[in-house]
Nucleic acid binder design. Structure first.
Lengths: 344, 344
DNA sequence: CGGCTTCTTTGAAACGTATCAAAGAAGCGC
DNA sequence: GCGCTTCTTTGATACGTTTCAAAGAAGCCG
């Protein structure tokens, strides 16, 4: 169980400690004969390089961190996948951490990764995290904010035009003739939630006679979507909305399931539903979900690129903020199949 | 940008380097006056403890690793959540890594976490990974194998009785009168896939007149489920199975979606479908999915408990292997709503 | 007041690695 | 054969922290 180090390897291979280190890092600079002896010693002893010492010596490790608010939301899982791929191509390892939308845990991970000496961090957050990122950046660890446009020009970010997304969603609902829209999601203080709402409001304002109400939420999960559905179903029919814009697909799915299965409400005839994120499960839900889609596949890789540029110190002022355009994906939860096939 | 260390803090606070360290680790052993001076210096300088050096000195860090084959499968994401919760309660941080079902990447992460000096690892894998875990364990890093029962008594594991799961699924299909079952999933060399198939076979053997075919798969994703659906729909009606047991919910959802929406096949009337894992999206799919459920909520925490016992060196031989019992959750993809309500 | 214990503070040593400067070996051309 | 260059090898040093042994300060009791 005694931890084996470079020193043991050296003595077994009968070479100096420095030679072993050279073999590991610049194999070409060591004679073929010793190369073999050393490799054998490494295998025999089961030597594994101690990362702590390695990092301490080098100052940094070839890893980056990705902090997601909720790994069980497929949206973030998909992004993680893209991050992984691009990072692997650049020889970087990725540590994923799940803050579970808890500010406390988010802080704790930020701190730990900084102390850990990662090269940089990708931070998707529902919190106003930018100030902390600035602190950390000034201390030498760069980061990319994901999902919110950073306020500071110095803080790189990758985001979606959320206002436009909200606008597209509600505009579509109005286009198909709905007039009583409910925006399901909260708290509005979460940047993404607030901006989507603003976009929704903009669409409503353009159209006289259309009203919007906001139904609050805390976690934005499937379960919460179900709760809201019960709440809506409990209202007298004439007080129910005829359209719902859910802040994300998870809530939309919960709503959909409960409205349709439990309460026999017809979607889209009685209530049309639009989600957000274009999660992979939206397409195969009870009633395929109309949703707002960002470029999932570009999100992760773009963030990694921004981060590596930042690490290399070559991030140019103009290119630090990437804002993607959302698009609307129309499915059966807002239009009946016949009309849907026209739309596609 | 110059990295600030304990030394700078000490000189700014006009105390010795050792005192600062004491303040950080045993605040009670330093006089109140200096305590204040040191804290101020830390704040002014924005000192963050260098984890590499810390770990190097201590030998180990208070972290564990969770390696999952596919984070975007909600099944693993849910487990990750449970792992996180239990670990946080024990003061442990969790690094999540995504091997993407690639043996190469799995190896690379195993190696990196070992070098990283984590206290232990939770490994969910579709590969025969046990030998490598044994190696790593002998070198001093314990682990818990998740999702497969370990062959060695010394290797802790948390798993589901997969054979029973397969049996339950197919038994149910037979009970509702189906005779031509297709098992969709592969490769059979993946332990979980093979065992579920064995269970399915056992159920078929009990029932004369019932046949089963296996339709192979590689990744077991939604997309692959869709492909298989196209393949099945392309057959003459009489050669189609009247029941499908999919190796996981992801494939089942892909199948469901494509069979129903694209090909107009009725589920469960024409083909009944059973999934596996009881993913949160199964309940809200096009047609709510009958599925085999393991105790999601216990899985992660149990694994963490096993691991901490192992770390503490107090794992008892008998308790190292936890095997959970699966149960069948019946929904609309195998029985019509009327019958379903009876079942619930 | 002297000796004892307890509380603070100190500086040095160690953790395992990469790298640097320097020494040694070997090969080459003249 | 000599001096030069190039290729290998070596051992010492530093990375930033914790901890240990020891010294100093302070308080207490007889």
């Amino acid at each position: 169980m005694a931890r084996v180090g470079i020193r043991e390897v050296a003595s077994l291979a009968e070479v100096s400690l420095g030679t072993v280190s050279h073999y590991i890092n610049h194999p070409d600079r060591v004679s073929p004969e010793k190369r073999q002896r050393i490799q054998k010693a490494i295998d025999d002893l089961g030597f594994v390089r101690n990362n702590a010492a390695w990092q301490l010596r080098l100052g940094r490790s070839a890893t980056i961190a990705y902090i997601a608010p909720d790994v069980s939301n497929p949206f973030f899982a998909t992004i993680a996948e893209g991050v992984e791929r691009r990072a692997a191509a650049g020889g970087l390892k990725v540590f994923i951490a799940n803050s579970n939308s808890s500010r406390e845990r988010e802080d704790s991970y930020l701190e730990m990764f900084e102390a850990q000496g990662v090269q940089g961090m990708l931070v998707a957050s529902h919190e106003p995290v930018e100030d902390r990122l600035t602190q950390i950046r000034l201390r030498g660890t760069p980061s990319v904010l994901m999902g919110q446009r950073a306020a500071s020009p110095a803080q790189p970010s990758v985001s979606l035009d959320e206002m436009k997304g909200g606008f597209l969603a509600v505009r579509h609902l109005i286009d198909i003739g709905r007039t009583r829209v409910a925006y399901v999601g909260g708290p509005l203080s979460v940047p993404q939630v607030g901006e989507r709402y603003e976009g929704a409001l903009a669409a409503v304002r353009e159209s006289p006679g259309v009203t919007i109400e906001q139904i609050d939420a805390v976690d934005r999960t499937i379960a919460e979507g179900r709760d809201v559905a019960d709440q809506i179903a409990a209202r007298p029919v004439e007080e129910r909305p005829d359209a719902i814009f859910a802040v994300n697909d998870l809530m939309a799915l919960g709503l959909l399931q409960t409205l349709v299965v439990e309460h026999g409400i017809r979607v889209p005839q009685d209530i049309a539903i639009v989600g957000y994120d274009d999660t992979v499960f939206g397409a195969s839900s009870i009633i395929p979900l109309t949703t707002v889609r960002g470029p999932h596949d570009s999100f992760g890789p773009t963030a990694v690129d921004l981060l590596t540029a930042e690490i290399a110190g070559e991030g140019s002022e103009e290119s630090k903020h990437v804002v993607f355009d959302p698009e609307l994906v129309i499915r059966a939860s807002t239009v009946t199949p016949a009309a849907s096939s026209m739309a596609e």
